[in-house]
Design a protein around this nucleic acid. Sequence first.
DNA 1: CTATGAAATGAAAACGTTTGCAAAAAACAA
DNA 2: TTGTTTTTTGCAAACGTTTTCATTTCATAG
Lengths: 341, 341
Amino acid sequence: MPDRKFASIVDVARKAGVSTATVSRYLNNPDIVKAQTGKRIEKAVAELDYVRNRAASSLHNRRTATIGLVVPTIDYAIFAEMMEAFSQRLMSHGFTTLIGAHGYDLDIERRLIRALMERSVDAIVLTGLDHRSESLSMMERREVPFLSVWNYSRDCTFPCIGIDNVRAGRATVEHLVALGHRRIAVLAGQTRANDRAEARCRGALAALEEAGCERREDWIRSCPYDIGDAKAHALRILESKDRPTAFACGNDIIALGVLFAAQSLGLSVPHDLSIMGIGDFRLSEHTHPALTTLRIPARRIGSLAADAIVGLVDGAPLDAPIEVETELKLRESTTPLPSRS
Amino acid sequence: MPDRKFASIVDVARKAGVSTATVSRYLNNPDIVKAQTGKRIEKAVAELDYVRNRAASSLHNRRTATIGLVVPTIDYAIFAEMMEAFSQRLMSHGFTTLIGAHGYDLDIERRLIRALMERSVDAIVLTGLDHRSESLSMMERREVPFLSVWNYSRDCTFPCIGIDNVRAGRATVEHLVALGHRRIAVLAGQTRANDRAEARCRGALAALEEAGCERREDWIRSCPYDIGDAKAHALRILESKDRPTAFACGNDIIALGVLFAAQSLGLSVPHDLSIMGIGDFRLSEHTHPALTTLRIPARRIGSLAADAIVGLVDGAPLDAPIEVETELKLRESTTPLPSRS
DNA sequence: CTATGAAATGAAAACGTTTGCAAAAAACAA
DNA sequence: TTGTTTTTTGCAAACGTTTTCATTTCATAG
């Protein structure tokens, strides 16, 4: 009969007739205790409903088998794919994922990181390259391994795994230009506290300029990753007589907004308007017409990040940023511009 | 100069010239130490980069200010909305969310619950009503407060907050019947380890029968919540000459799959085919045509659950299941059946 | 000035594990 | 048998907090 409320390791030890040391060893490394002793411990554990207390063990270990994952928002399809792959892969390594969302607010991000550190996570994964410097130095000083997913930049000072967003933005415009388009609108994601969106926009505009396309400020907009907002912006641009022949969009959600805007105006896609996205959400290949997009291998990024962070926890060094390649998914929403125009 | 690797509370205490007790008190309840002492502690904390160790405090407290949230998958738009609202609301209560996804595998769910309990979460939130009995008894025996979100059932033995899925399924068919439809296909979600999908399907079929509609087994299908699968199923049903005039879908993703299938066959929605979903994802009101659906207030469920679970942790009782109302969102994808047929 | 009670602080014993060190037990060799 | 390894185990001291109980300090009133 335990004197505490719930069975602790000493209750298990007493019941099994061994010392707590032995129980602890068995729990962490069953092979080093005699099989017969192990059986007795197993039995005691079952009978007492013993659940070990990781908080107590982490007092010695420094290990909690928990990794913190900080994202801007959970509620965004393609992050979700990445998170899912990440936490799945992590689970196969025996780790649990502690997730926090900051809603694109870097101060909340800082608070989240602190909260994670107070909970002694073994490592932290951030999203994107843009963070408060105190956030980074806090982790560095306490020697908490961390890396960043989603974005890649050659000269990033900390480990990162992701795509080159400038190149991605550039690629969308280049594809449209190759199809003969000159009158291209750019609808980027909200660039505030979002270096991904900002980089893509930068890349798109650069490509526009290199192709010698006219740069029309009224065709260059940015809006939140929200289909309603995107649709509203697109409507405003498309309602004019003098409209673009193609849209380069910051991501697939925005592209869908443009698509539905065009359809609701009675425009035919891709005949009257070509639309190109970035991401390749699971939806994108099934829309009608199917969306041409630059695929971001979200699940792959998640798995890679999981492996990398486990490596970091085990002391393996990870110096170089890792670039993950995008892939042009040519589908039905873009078409060559008829030579007439 | 601390002798340990990182500053602990005793280093802070030494530096501030007070006892650890005082530092601890200040950290937990700044008001009960003298303002001037507080300042000194504050300063020491800053200078030493002190991060408190919640693992150690939870040894006494039983509190970790962490709540576990277990969902089938993160990668599903409407769960994501709920999770986002949940974790946001929880953060405003000073809690952190520990998330686990089990991929519709109840054994993995059990392992997750155990992992959460080992990390001494203050409470656990599950999704749906269908769980391993060991999962439930494990929490009960250790007196971990828990509740379930998403589903409501009057006679559920544990607290739950959600919608009545039987009624929801019923409502979709009833709406179509009210519009004059008789030839109604039912495309439900995968019913394996998914009581939501199963209940909705049950409701839909009951309504079909009550309305005296012919029950055609080839029009009653279930498929994963995946737009590609849904599209494939819909195509098979729609390609036949003898096709339904309406689809009642298990959720909005499935409804979208049906919509795109119809469009790719050149059918006009809603003129040739009415489509009704469940959920009201953020996408749904913007598609073309906009989707008629039964709205599940996902964010509201998340917030309610957060408040409720905090209440449970604070010892407030929560006995009765809470039903959240759905709402019919009448949009463009359904229309009355022309009297000719 | 002293008495009184309230407010602020300190000393030390928990909390439930792990682990270094040493002892006991088992296995093996001679 | 005895001696030598090797394998298992136990003891007890951490780990970084919180908290009870005492004690000191402070304010206020008489």
